[in-house]
Write a protein that binds this DNA or RNA. Structure first.
Lengths: 213, 213, 213, 213
DNA sequence: GATGAATGAGCCTTCATTCAT
DNA sequence: AATGAATGAAGGCTCATTCAT
């Protein structure tokens, strides 16, 4: 039985997840995300990953494919756990505040803008990458919030005619004046206080519009 | 006569605004804004401008400088005339609707995303360009709207505690769900109806929060 | 018994003729002869042979050596059985016709040109290979035919002063206008009729010159 | 009038025949013809031509194109003036002897085999090049000789049923045993005497078959 | 001032070969 | 013996930049 179990062992590093592969992806992310697709060179990536240039091509057939793998991985990492709601939590104000602050922090945090810039830049030539990024990122967040709003509509805690648009507008309002200066790369990361202030206004506006009188 | 001829030419090589210079800038804008900084080649730019590659370097010392000049010029063209308000117009709802629709159309219009992608991409390496773009574009719009809101506060038509943030959040709300899919390059330009619908919600939300009871 | 077993296996790892070695040679021939020395890659050869790249180097120390082995083997396969003569057959016309047609078919047949091109190409850099190919191929044919002509001289059926040159000229005449267009890779394989026509003229010319009056 | 004449002057070096272009072609021929297409590197060609690698690509868009230009030029140089016949010269034996010796010398001369090997090698991948080479070389020679034979048929000096095949077979016979060892790159260039001997046999055979009794 | 020929550094990619397992 | 992961030296080609005319 033990022997059998051993035989079953699922060929742990099937190439899809070997150490070298991860090593390459890590090096490539660093370089791609800080330089952009064009300015990143395979040589630099190889050096950053600590492998030879040839090895890069053992794992990825081209620069494009390597880049695609990076972005796909980056997508999964977006806002993990941020858009998780407790349906039974009817304190909408608190929920929105928590979400808004988390979201603004996530967006403006150090290192968040580079990947975003890189993806936006490449979207011109590789639309599928732009689409994948949007759908696994912003869109999923909006949909999740909208679903929560639906439950609160049903619970009578809110009265939102179009929950999806309300959700999107709320998310956008939470980063107004905060994120664009970071994205355009000339402003320091806003501090907690400032973020809380802006999110507070967003929440108040939202509730003024959608809280049942 | 020869002397006179010489005297007539007013500032012969004004460099800053010669026809050739404009010609180059025009050609360069087309190429830069549609391909991005890295993918654009000086050769292609020269061809688009109808001059020789050497001439490019007579007017601009490097590709970077030429690109900077393009973006600086592009900034000036942003949303011209969109953020012009009639202070005496107290029909805030109408004003916001007009502005919101104009803004969303402007953002999502064909050809608008490429330059934006290009600027965002280069902001990583050239922060001053990102700054210049933001300040002459989004920021100016926000400031202009905030100023109008100030006047309406004063006139008693509104009650907005922080007009700058309110302005920014309103602008952002007008493009929610509309612009990002275009920026990420996978969705068609939204139609007028859809835009009006989203803007309508933004306006209602704004007024619900800020119209004096 | 054990001893016997050991004694039985005649030259266990004869290296020179192991199954793996033959396997590699077979795969390599396909690739080398259809792509040429430079265009053939060791990777492709490994795949064609169904072994790993590393194994190639277990049997052959370099690409050059492997190629050499292929060509040496290819030499042996040249025109097997074509240049076999019945010394007692005094119907020279029939013998030459049979030989000429067989030779022209052999030269022009599908797949014959690629190896030839490959050998000619490599002769520049590896003269020994060119020499081996010529001597085991064309030269052997010429010598064999010359020997037959000698016997017919002796039998009084022919009167050929220089049988070796006569043999070579006859062989060449049999493929005139037929083979070069195939070798230069722009003409289809000539049909049987055309071949028979050209060979017929070669035979008539030969007999006109060398048949005793 | 003089001025006008000057203006008309046809822009002498239209790029098609500039000194640099010739310089590149010369360098490229040396390298291509001695190494073959694949083994020749653009870097080595640049060095041989005394220009930079970039300059190569100013004049030729790719390695293939450059190679094609070399071969096209090489075609023109084939057997210039060898296949010129005096129709009124009825001394066929002398004509054929002169032609045969010239042809064999031309084929076997130092430096002649390399281009041939190179063209044969590349014919696998670039059939048009093989075709162009054959048609401007061997074929033209055959056609020219056939035309001469036609005139001598008409003049009653010969009786050749198929002049084209007779021409081709004669040409081939002139190099039998001589050229292949050179092509396969292991034999020294045959001396004049040996050539004359082989050609002499070819001529005798031809006349035995085709001289009217 | 304007040109365009020329450059050379650098890019992505391939491939013969090696070596630990 | 056999593997296949890893390497590093090229290779073809592009392009920002320079400079003689």
């Amino acid at each position: 039985m033990t022997a059998q179990t051993e035989l079953i062992r699922p060929e742990a590093e099937a190439d899809e997840d070997s150490a070298k592969r991860r090593q390459i992806i890590d090096g490539a992310r660093t370089v791609f995300m800080s330089q952009g697709f064009d300015a990143a060179s395979m040589g630099e990536i190889a050096k950053a990953a600590g492998v030879s240039k040839g090895t890069l091509y053992v794992y990825f057939p081209s620069k494009e494919e390597l880049f695609g793998a990076i972005v796909r991985q980056e997508c999964k990492a977006q806002a993990e756990g941020l858009f998780v709601f407790d349906t039974d939590d009817h304190d909408v104000e608190a929920v929105l505040n928590r979400l808004g602050n988390g979201y603004a922090h996530f967006l403006c945090r150090k290192g968040a803008s580079s990947p975003l810039r890189t993806v936006i830049a490449i979207a011109e030539r590789m639309p599928e990458i732009g689409k994948a990024f949007y759908q696994t990122g912003p869109e999923r967040g909006i949909k999740a919030l909208a679903a929560y709003l639906d439950t609160q509509n049903a619970a009578g805690a809110l009265n939102v005619p179009d929950t999806e648009i309300a959700a999107a507008q709320f998310m956008d309002a939470c980063q107004s004046t905060l994120f664009k200066p970071v994205l355009f790369n000339f402003a320091p990361i806003p501090n907690d206080e400032r973020i809380a202030y802006v999110v507070g206004i967003a929440v108040r506006t939202f509730l003024a519009a959608y809280r049942p009188r």
